[in-house]
């Protein structure tokens, strides 16, 4: 029998399968990348004429599309997202802290809560819109206000924040907790002074991704009465508002050519905002080197 290295170079068995698999993977990747690239190029090309400072400086206008901008949508988005974060962050992080550090994992109640949160994260956002309409807009009579929008979006992202925070807490090694408890710290001190700070980078990443999800939502806001045409900046929690996704939706409904290019420009703006949030998230993740 000849040595495997001698003689004619033969292809080892399975070579064809390897190649087929490899190209299938590349193809799958290509479909995703090409779709994204096409989408981006189309949108940027369509919105290009309107991608100028006027887009930020001007208010929307129905009668003068050539002068219209998205300022009220930008400020509206910032207001809604800011308030959403103010409500969802403390609630979500404290809930996760309780579930991960204090609740007994074996109890039936805890398992029920676990399953509920997983399911809530999978509920379509339009359902949260219906809930927001019934509870915040009608029952609490908040009307078509920033407060109603922020509370609805907070409910929407709460399960995501709880799940990612719990994962970040779970990644903190047990030794940190034991070290703290062995020093005579109470469970609360251990959670607050050691576990939470150690998990902070992971929590920040998850929170930012959840917030960027809220920033891109249109469906629930449509239900609770975000108004497409708002030509003023919000001035308080009970103010009327519009957001970028809503503004895009409103402009695409209009048949005039100026509005379709305006919508494209607003989409680019929204994408830049979301991209900035995601880049921040991965920056935090990469900066937090593993310390254990």
């Amino acid at each position: 029998m000849s040595s495997p290295l001698a003689g004619r170079r033969t292809r080892r068995p399975g070579w064809i399968a390897d190649q087929v698999f490899r190209w299938a993977l590349l193809l799958a990747l290509g479909i995703g990348v090409i779709t994204l690239a096409t989408l981006l190029c189309t949108v940027v090309a369509a919105g290009w004429p309107r991608l100028n400072p006027d887009l930020i400086a001007h208010m929307p206008s129905i009668r003068f599309p050539e002068r219209a901008g998205a300022q009220s949508a930008i400020t509206g988005t910032l207001w809604v997202i800011g308030c959403t974060a103010l409500v969802a962050l403390p609630t979500g992080i404290l809930a996760a802290l309780y579930l991960e550090e204090f609740a007994r994992p074996t109890s039936r109640f805890q398992r029920l809560v676990d399953v509920s949160i997983q399911n809530l994260a999978a509920v379509p956002s339009i359902v949260y819109g219906i809930l927001g309409l019934a509870v915040f807009v009608r029952a609490l009579a908040l009307g078509q206000s920033i407060a109603a929008a922020a509370l609805t979006l907070a409910l929407l992202v709460l399960p995501i924040i709880i799940i990612t925070t719990r994962e970040a807490l779970r990644a903190v090694p047990r030794g940190i907790r034991e070290g703290s408890l062995a020093l005579g710290a109470t469970e609360w001190q251990t959670a607050y002074r050691q576990t939470l700070p150690a998990a902070l980078p992971g929590i920040a990443t998850g929170v930012i991704l959840a917030i960027s999800r809220a920033a891109g939502e249109a469906a629930p806001l449509l239900l609770i009465g975000a108004v497409g045409f708002i030509a003023f900046n919000p001035d308080g929690l009970l103010s009327g508002y519009t957001t970028l996704p809503i503004q895009v939706y409103d402009w695409t409904k209009d048949s005039r050519a100026e509005f379709s290019s305006l919508a494209a420009a607003a989409i680019v703006l929204l994408l830049i905002l979301l991209l900035a949030l995601n880049v921040t998230a991965s920056w935090i993740r990469s900066r937090a080197r593993r310390r254990w």
Binding site: S180, A185, R291
Partner: peptide, 24 residues
């Protein structure tokens, strides 16, 4: 003292030594 060294990662050397005093 545990098998695996478990200093508090978010604290300085000094902060670690004093952490027990602060906690209690």
């Amino acid at each position: 003292v545990f098998q695996k060294p478990n200093p508090f990662p978010s604290m300085t050397i000094r902060g670690n030594v004093l952490s027990g005093l602060k906690l209690s």
